[in-house]
């Protein structure tokens, strides 16, 4: 694993000191019409270079919206989002995203999906092939290189999307519930892969999840968001060893922290259901 990423890591870091700064960002859907809906309300967030940051929050609180804003897919209406490359105004290859719904190109095979990003990133033909295969193997899709997305299960499509994004080795990695469609076993394997990749390449990762254990296992810091309109309610440091394996799940500190965070998330979820009535 580590062999794969070291070369790429230096390249990725060379041009960006990846860090994200979100200040006073609010977002209203349908702002131009009368019945606009406030999705994010005054978000402030500083994500350090090389930090693994998890976003937790009830469904519909604006986690995806925040990722789209950081990715530059939707325009920032209020506040400022900047990376070390300057204010975010459009999508860029320094920030790559794994979408919640995968967003593969349905007319391309798994391999061609992965190759697309690599081509755009300017890898030479031989290296493209090699990298594509390596990442397809990594997400355990070996043998499905020539399958079309419509021939794959949801979890397989999700893994293809992960391979496609990881292969281009972005400085900032945005992941929107990237393991949501996976079974518990595969999820665990992928979490460990991702930790390894992150540790070896020192990317900045913003990772959205509903799974508290997953967040604690992966993150340096965790932001807990409130129910709609989304606000950052708590930011929690995860003081656990950098090297985390299966055994950490038994760790007292891990369990304690998970329970603590779970209670905080639950508060928000309860508030969300109450708000709905």
């Amino acid at each position: 694993m580590s062999m794969i990423h070291t070369a790429a890591a230096t390249r990725g870091r060379a041009h960006t000191a990846s860090a994200i700064s979100v200040s006073d960002v609010s977002h209203t859907y349908g702002a131009r019409t009368a019945g606009g809906m406030l999705a994010l309300d005054g978000i402030n967030l500083e994500i350090g270079d090389g930090e693994f940051h998890c976003l937790l929050g009830p469904s519909g609180c604006g986690k995806s919206t925040l990722l789209y804003l950081i990715g530059g897919f939707i325009p920032v209406q209020a506040g400022v989002i900047s990376t070390s490359a300057g204010p975010v105004t459009a999508p860029g290859p320094d920030r790559s995203i794994v979408f919640q719904n995968f967003a593969l190109f349905p007319w391309k095979t798994v391999k061609d999906n992965v190759l697309y990003g690599l081509k755009k990133a300017g890898f030479a033909a031989a290296e493209r092939e090699q990298r594509a295969q390596r990442y397809i193997d990594m997400v355990h899709l070996t043998g499905f290189e020539n399958a079309y997305p419509s021939q794959l299960s949801g979890g397989m499509q999700q893994r293809a999307a992960i391979a496609r994004t990881l292969a281009v080795d972005p400085g900032i990695l945005l992941m929107d519930e990237p393991f949501g469609a996976l079974d518990a076993q595969t999820r665990r394997v992928m979490q460990e892969e991702l930790r390894t990749i992150w540790r070896d390449s020192r990317k900045t990762v913003v990772f959205v999840t509903h799974d508290v254990q997953e967040a604690v296992f992966l993150a340096d810091r965790i932001s807990i968001m409130s129910a709609r309109p989304g606000r950052i309610q708590h930011v929690i440091d995860v003081d656990l060893p950098k090297d985390r394996g299966e055994e950490i799940l038994e760790n007292r500190a891990f369990i304690g922290l998970s329970e603590h965070i779970w209670r905080l998330v639950r508060e928000q979820a309860v508030a969300a259901t109450r708000g709905a009535h």
Binding site: F73, R95, F99, N101, Y116, A121
Partner: peptide, 12 residues
Amino acid sequence: KWPIWSARCFGA
């Protein structure tokens, strides 16, 4: 919009 966003994300 999703494939379009994907492509733009990769720098198309």
